[in-house]
């Protein structure tokens, strides 16, 4: 198990004191597999990722639970120790590659800097290594790209550079936080395919964070659907998509316009999508019982006061729903 998160609680600041942002989160991620953490914004996906990286913003704390990376407990580590792990054994790819790259440094220098910081290779070989990596992520003319600045790249190319930065120290875990949301649909698929390819070469585990279930399905082996800080459903990608067991998962699936090709396209498109009404309740105003209670089309009386526990719905497939 590369990453094992158990019963994690994270609290964040609010006007009326700390409130739970992530509640009782459990994740298990073996090597060379991808887990997608899916949910709307405000569900605690990004906070979870930041907590694993040890980069929680001020005011946010892990209040209980454990985060183990390759068997080592991360929650007890000091800031310095965490900094040594970042980049080396775990790396992060951010949503907006433009802001994650330094605009006044050449891409090559930024990559070699990471290579040297983590002593991946001797300084004399850093340049060649960086160029090789740029080629590996599918950039044409890597020598030329080595001395380019980030603004000379298109969005997709910048995200490829971010991938290089993430993989160059061969981390066990790569956290990709909405890596394709800022990109065109056409480039999205390319980047996801690239991540898959890199994974198969390095055997790293990927934690993919996204709000797009269908995009997640391209890359992920397993899906964990998060809503308002709690896990609603978790299971193998195919099982979750083919037989979603939680109303929220069904809602997410129904709300995405699916491309219909061939004969399906001729059948006519339903005029409305099955949208989930309302919005995610902010932390502190979440329902007492099931987190999804306020928006659930099938809520029972029980759901208001009691929180459903994960129930097995199939092999390795669990959903937290009374129905």
């Amino acid at each position: 198990m590369v990453l094992a998160v158990e019963n994690l609680f994270i609290h964040g600041p609010s006007s009326s004191g700390p409130v739970a942002v992530v509640e009782s989160l459990t994740l298990a991620l073996p090597a060379a597999t991808t887990l997608a953490l899916v949910g709307e914004s405000g569900c605690g996906k990004t906070i979870t990722a930041l907590s694993i990286m040890g980069l929680l913003p001020p005011g946010f704390f892990i209040t209980s639970g454990s985060v183990k990376l390759g068997g080592e407990e991360l929650t007890f580590l000091s800031k310095t120790e965490l900094r040594q792990r970042r980049g080396k054994s775990m790396a992060m790819i951010f949503q907006e590659p433009m802001t994650a790259l330094n605009p006044v440094m050449t891409v090559g220098r930024q990559i070699t800097e990471v290579l040297l910081t983590h002593r991946v290779c001797p300084p004399s070989q850093a340049r060649d290594k960086a160029i090789a990596l740029l080629g590996q992520v599918g950039l044409k003319e890597p020598e030329k790209r080595f001395s380019s600045y980030p603004h000379e790249f298109s969005g997709g190319m910048r995200q490829r550079v971010m991938c290089v930065m993430a993989i160059c120290a061969n981390p066990q875990l790569i956290i990709a936080d909405e890596p394709t949301t800022a990109l065109d649909a056409t480039v999205q698929a390319q980047i996801l395919e690239l991540l898959r390819e890199l994974q198969s070469q390095s055997g790293a585990a990927i934690l993919l964070i996204t709000h797009n279930l269908l995009a997640a399905s391209i890359l992920a082996d397993r899906l964990t659907v998060l809503y308002a800080g709690s896990v609603m459903e978790t299971g193998p990608t195919a099982a979750v998509l083919n037989s979603p067991a939680h109303p929220y998962t069904r809602g997410l699936l129904g709300s995405q316009p699916r491309l219909r090709l061939g004969r399906d396209a001729l059948c006519g498109i339903p005029p409305t999508l099955a949208a989930i009404s309302g919005q995610v309740p902010p932390p502190g105003r979440r329902p007492l019982g099931c987190a999804f209670f306020s928006r659930c089309p099938q809520a029972l009386k029980d759901c208001r006061d009691n929180r459903p526990h994960p129930v097995s719905k199939g092999p390795e497939h669990q959903a937290a729903c009374f129905r």
Binding site: G278, Q279, P281, S294, C296, A299, L300, K301, D302, C303
Partner: peptide, 15 residues
């Protein structure tokens, strides 16, 4: 078991 339908007031309260 009864299905609770009216949950819309929860969101408007917020505003």
């Amino acid at each position: 078991m009864t299905v609770i339908k009216d949950v819309s007031d929860l969101e408007s309260a917020d505003n």
